[in-house]
Amino acid sequence: MNKIIAKEHFSENVVKLVVEAPLIARSRRPGHFVIVICGEKGERIPLTIAEADVNAGTITLVIQAIGESTRKICALQPGDYLTDVVGPLGRATHIEKFGTVVCAGGGVGVAPMLPIIQAMKEAGNRVISVLAARTKELIILEEQVRRWSDEVIIMTDDGSYGRKGLVTQGVEEIINSTDVDLVVTIGPAIMMKFVAELTKRYSIPTICSLNTIMVDGTGMCGACRITVDGKTRFVCVDGPEFDAHKVDFNEMMMRLRAYNTPKK
């Protein structure tokens, strides 16, 4: 049982929870995720870690209510408990001084991007962050991202905040104005797919972080499998980060729809 310490609404369907999890707070690294269960009969839901406070023994999760289970988690209040939180899972992000790193985050993908931005900055990189969303209220964690970025570009589909346009436009402008050594992209699969296609044209190494369907999250069930460079890989133990130029995004997007039809 893990206590909810604080809650903040980023928008109607996006919630930030600060959760008591001292061991995870201590051992997590950028790129890691956790599995969360809400209720005795709850699903195991993979969630990325946005921030951690070792001293307070807490981790910060950002959850978008998209299904029954995530809605249940988003409805929790401070003082309530998550039934289970396990992690940190997955492989940590490979951090080193690459030079100029572009971090392109879409929607709630900005949450797992934040620790990567911070670590890349601390490793001596010049970090340019591109935050993208459909509309202004869906741009999250802007202040925290600014703290660790040399430059921040905001893109909204409807132009209600920052510049009007897609994340790829923001990334391409940066590529055209400066030398980029690495792109990191986290967000909806379709967004990562287009970022990958763009950077492939410019031959810029690109890392994506994938959020697939999982059950155990510890390398046992294979629900999260994807094809990378023609080979089957498991997001939970081989990922969640992969070379974005080698991921079969079309297959991944198809697999994400496996449970879209409501269950009986």
């Binding site: 059950v215 046992m220 069930c221 294979g222 994807i226 198809m254 729809r257 496996a258």
Partner: peptide
Amino acid sequence: ENLIGVLSSNE
């Protein structure tokens, strides 16, 4: 083998 509806027995 990665189609929807193809699962491991573990899953």
